[in-house]
Simulated assay, not measured.
Amino acid sequence: MLELFKALADPCRLRLLAVLLKSELTVQELTQIMGMGQSRISRHLKILAEAGVLSVKRQGTWSYYRAGEQNTFFTAIRPEFERALEQLPERRNDLAAVAQALEARRKRSQEFFDQHAAQWDDLSRTLLPVPEYQDALLALVPEVAVLLEIGVGTGILLAELARKAKQVIGVDHSPAMLVEARRRLVQDDVPGAELRLGEMTHLPIANGGAGCVVANMVLHHAPDPQAVLTEIVRVLQLQGTLVLADLARHEREWAREQLADQWLGFEEDELKVWLEGAGLSEVTIERVTAPNGVEDVLLVKAVKR
């Protein structure tokens, strides 16, 4: 308790904690949000982390900070504490700055995919090869009335997914990617498929509108993966199924620039916590192992509670 109260007894640290209770952010992003130097921000973060209030996740040369649960007393008082933080005089401006930081992540991603849409399939296979997993992914997809694929890209899966549902909806935030996907739909003569422009955190479909959501190699491009999972749960019908494929944790730092990756893959335990926190149950995670030089893939299936 003493360590916690000492850590919280500073206006700057209260502001830091307030924004990190909402989003997972890097030191560089926090310096912009808070309008402070990096050394000052790092010192405050160190104090909060040592008190068990924050946790840090290192991905290559980047460190992401978020609210932690190591301090059991803080966990117990957190609901009331969060309500009190809304009264901070800087709260509105800080939240606006957080939104700008996440928007900057999203914009970098969209610009990258608009630029590389025509070469994307070859580019991704060449730079970051993965083991063959498509058949195993499709085996997890149930037959439903409406199936939604987010981050549809060039539409490489749509023909197969159309066999699983009466209606298939593909969503992507890149207009150029949707052009490539439409070309593939015509080429493959895929009936009952519809393409929509939209963000992973604001899917253009009604609450409970999909029996299954497929997210194939898109979560590591998301500025805020937990917000994406929450949005997926919104559009899933009760007992609806999420099928997700993504990279296991790796250390290829260059993927941030060359492939617009926001995250260097994920840990299995980390994904499970996020999935269950978003409102999903019956979570299964299968690791598709790869030979040297090829990254492992995580195949996930979960059901909306």
Rank of each mutant, 00 (worst) to 15 (best):
E3L: 08
F5N: 06
A9D: 15
P11Y: 08
C12K: 02
L14Y: 09
L16R: 04
E24V: 14
Q28K: 06
L30V: 10
R40P: 10
R40E: 15
R40L: 11
I41D: 01
L45C: 04
I47H: 03
L48D: 10
A51G: 01
G52E: 13
L54H: 03
V56L: 00
V56H: 01
Q59L: 04
Q59A: 06
W62G: 07
S63K: 11
A67K: 12
G68W: 09
G68E: 06
T75N: 07
R78E: 13
P79N: 05
P79L: 01
E80I: 14
F81D: 10
E90V: 07
R92P: 08
L95C: 09
L95T: 14
A96N: 14
Q100M: 05
A101T: 14
K107E: 13
D114H: 08
A118F: 11
Q119F: 12
W120Q: 02
W120E: 00
D122E: 15
R125H: 15
R125S: 13
R125F: 08
L127A: 07
L128D: 13
P129I: 12
V130C: 04
P131G: 00
D135R: 09
P142V: 02
E143H: 04
V144Q: 00
A145W: 11
A145H: 13
V146F: 02
V146K: 01
G155H: 01
I156W: 01
L157W: 05
A159K: 12
L161A: 02
A165W: 09
G170Q: 07
D172P: 08
H173V: 09
A176K: 04
E180T: 04
E180C: 08
R182D: 15
L195C: 05
E199L: 06
E199I: 02
T201N: 01
L203G: 12
I205T: 09
I205A: 06
G209C: 08
G211S: 03
V213H: 02
N216W: 02
P223G: 05
Q226F: 09
Q226H: 08
I232Q: 01
V233C: 02
R234Q: 12
L236H: 07
Q237C: 12
Q239V: 09
Q239W: 11
L242T: 13
V243G: 02
A245R: 02
A245P: 10
D246C: 11
R249Q: 05
H250T: 06
E253Y: 15
E253F: 15
R256Q: 14
R256W: 14
Q258P: 05
A260K: 01
Q262D: 07
W263F: 12
W263L: 03
G265K: 02
F266Y: 14
E268M: 04
D269Y: 03
W274T: 09
A278W: 12
A278G: 07
S281M: 06
E282S: 08
E282P: 01
T284W: 03
G293I: 14
G293M: 13
G293N: 12
G293D: 13
V294I: 15
V300Q: 00
V300G: 00
K301L: 00
V303K: 00
V303P: 03
K304A: 11
